[in-house]
Design a protein around this nucleic acid. Structure first.
Length: 649
DNA sequence: CGCCTTTGACCCGCGC
DNA sequence: GCGCGGGTCAAAGGCG
């Protein structure tokens, strides 16, 4: 299994490297153009090269970061000779001296000659001469070339010829790179499939293993997983000395980011074109930016088909709009853009709970079937922040405040807001990731989540009783974090018949902003936004067998562990970290996600770092941030036992 | 004066 | 096509 991970990682690195090289060549060509040589170059050839490069560079979503990585080659991956040549040639072009006829002639005479004097050096070594300036003007402007002498004409012709040759060579090598990328993509997909199969087998095997072996299983997963496992995170928080002494330091949280999109260059596409465009332009730090796409964006590791679309960079092509497009693009590569919503139920007498963010009310409506009005708020912490939330009291119990968050913050969040944002983003991530593209995947998702006991038996012993309610009904998939019920109530709560439930470490936990904010590195939430996302099928089509038994199976352990950790003052911190970590940890048993653990999970990391879905901490600036009075108090013995239902409507 | 809330109007999607 | 409901806009007014 670890080899599969390794190969996947290597493929990703190689792909990124190649794409980066390709893009760098395109950039250098653009430099040439800016230097006034455009008129020498066949526009057709030029654009062809650029388009090829651009498309390659964006193949796996590396548009933004590709250039940042071009300077560093991966030593672990052999550098193809053609790429080396390409790099050397493009470098040569970049440093071509336009200030001297001799240099130009030299260029023609020896294309492989080492870099010449820099223009500045030339100027320093040779006092400014009128001729130099004229030549420069002639060469660079390309306008007065017709009036230049025959010598200049010949020079220009030779230069043009050499450039054409170079461009042709670049073009050919681009084609080779393209082919390489295609092959790599195929291999990557195959490896993903193998990984999926292997994980499925592993999950099945885990079913047969006694619970006592779960520790070993966790270790194994940890070993395979570049990130911390949930259990590790708990230990990490509860017993920092142990965690740190074992080599895990707070810096490890940053290590999460090392697998994040910023490094793997996973392309994240936003539903909202302007946001996506803005991000491309500003190249926002992934650590703070990526997440925003959590609920709105799609991450597709299998971006092969899209990669073949040279119009990828075209905003108008960000989203597949026609059915034709969707048919052409494999399901896994389609871009579903649906906003996920995270609804938090909490008991609160206040009209609105403070969650660390600033909100402005922009509307209020009377919702049908509820005498209480629904208020609409917009985040005002930053201009243009798309995050919105709805606040409404439950009709049945007006003491319960339902806060629904939508969108992702486009700005840094204060620690208090980051905490809940991480949780909600993780919830959104799970929501979307749980809604896989295919029915089989969904069924597998539910079935194995429930039957394999992955969460309850091994990775999530402390969270077995925690569930969230997921409603994927139109118009937006929504996950509800119910913080209103007592832990035991929730634990024994019978899920509605129309819901499919499985243990999920989402909710019912107080958010310790000190922990999460203090870490400063919001633990990534793996998010896979399946292309062509659609709301999960109605529960009727979802197999839930074994779920109930799973909860029962883990209940004893859960209660024991809950009682033990409830008294731990760091309990809430552990929960918070575990929640995020679990969300960020790979879910080998999950059908669709597992194939993207390396990618999407990392993306999610950054997404979480961004505080995506909006913060939910609405409690007063007291200790229980985001936790309604009496429901979720840090250290509350109820919390560990709290239960949430993750259901699919 | 600026920010915020209120509130009616408007838009849009969906179902009949 | 029409009505309904959800969501948003924007003018008006309040408040510090």
């Amino acid at each position: 299994m670890r080899y599969i991970y390794f190969y996947l990682f290597c493929w990703l690195k190689l792909k990124r490297w190649v794409a980066g090289r390709c893009k760098s060549s395109a950039v250098r060509i653009a430099v040439m153009e800016k230097q006034g040589r455009r008129h020498h170059i066949s526009s057709k050839l030029f654009h062809h090269s650029v388009s090829d490069c651009s498309f390659n560079a964006s193949d796996d979503g590396q548009l933004v970061d590709a250039t940042n990585n071009t300077s560093s080659s991966n030593p672990s991956i052999p550098i193809p000779i053609p790429i080396k040549q390409l790099f050397r040639q493009t470098k040569e072009i970049k440093e071509m001296d336009f200030f001297s006829d001799n240099k130009i002639m030299n260029d023609d005479a020896d294309d492989d000659e080492e870099p010449r004097l820099q223009p500045q050096q030339d100027c320093n070594n040779n006092p400014p001469a009128v001729n130099t300036g004229l030549n420069l003007l002639t060469l660079n402007s390309g306008i007065s070339s017709t009036s230049a002498g025959d010598i200049h004409q010949n020079s220009n012709n030779k230069l043009m010829t050499s450039l054409q040759v170079e461009l042709e060579r670049l073009h050919e090598e681009n084609g080779e790179l393209k082919t390489m990328l295609d092959q790599m993509t195929k291999s990557y997909s195959q490896l993903q499939a193998q990984l999926l199969i292997a994980m499925q087998k592993q999950a099945q095997n885990r079913l047969r293993e006694p619970i006592k072996c779960e520790a070993n299983g966790m270790l194994a997963r940890q070993f395979m997983d570049p990130r911390l496992s949930a259990a590790a995170a708990i230990d990490h928080v509860r017993n920092p000395s142990v965690a740190y002494s074992s080599g895990k330091t707070p810096a490890d949280h940053e290590a999460f980011s090392s697998f994040s999109p910023s490094n793997l260059n996973i392309e994240v596409m936003s539903t909202e074109r302007d946001q996506y465009k803005r991000r491309l332009q500003t190249n926002i730090n992934c650590a703070e930016d990526a997440l925003d796409r959590s609920s709105q964006c799609l991450v597709s590791p299998n971006y092969t088909s899209k990669s073949s679309n040279p119009n990828l960079l075209d905003d108008d092509n960000d989203e597949p709009k026609s059915s034709t497009d969707q048919e052409q693009v494999p399901v896994a590569d389609q871009v579903p853009f649906r906003k996920a919503r995270v609804s938090v139920r909490a008991r609160s007498e206040a009209p609105m709970i403070s969650d660390g963010c600033q909100w402005r009310k922009y509307g209020q409506k009377m919702a049908k079937g509820n005498p209480c009005p629904r208020a609409y708020y917009r985040c005002t912490m930053a201009i243009g922040c798309p995050v919105r939330k709805q606040v409404q009291r439950l009709a049945e119990d007006k003491t319960i405040l339902i806060t629904t968050y939508e969108g992702n913050h486009s700005h840094p969040l204060p620690p208090a807001a980051t905490a809940m944002a991480n949780t909600t983003s993780a919830a959104a991530a799970m929501l979307l990731s749980g809604s896989t593209t295919s029915k089989e995947a969904l069924q597998y998702h539910h079935h194995h989540l429930a039957n394999s006991g992955f969460f309850s038996n091994s990775q999530l012993p402390f969270f077995a009783s925690s569930m969230a309610t997921l409603s994927a009904s139109a118009p937006f998939p929504t996950i509800t974090l119910d913080l209103t019920q007592s832990p035991m109530q929730q634990f024994h709560r019978i899920p509605p018949p129309s819901s499919s439930t499985f243990p999920l470490p989402l909710h019912g936990y107080p958010i310790n902003h000190q922990l999460m904010g203090g870490l400063g590195h919001p633990i990534p939430a793996p998010m896979y936004f399946p292309p062509n996302y659609k709301a999960p099928p109605s529960p009727a089509g979802v197999s839930l067998g074994g779920q109930r038994s799973t909860s029962t199976h883990a209940s004893g352990m859960v209660e024991t562990v809950s009682a033990a950790i409830a008294s731990d003052p760091n309990f809430t911190a552990a929960l918070a970290a575990a929640i995020s970590t679990i969300m960020g940890a790979p879910r080998p048993h999950q059908g669709h996600q597992e194939s993207i653990n390396i990618n999407d999970g990392d993306i999610a990391n950054n997404n979480a770092a961004r505080g995506v879905v909006a913060s939910t901490n609405n409690s007063p600036p007291s200790a229980n941030i985001g936790v309604p009075p009496g429901s979720l108090q840090p250290g509350s013995p109820q919390l560990p036992q709290s239960c949430t239902t993750f259901s699919t409507n």
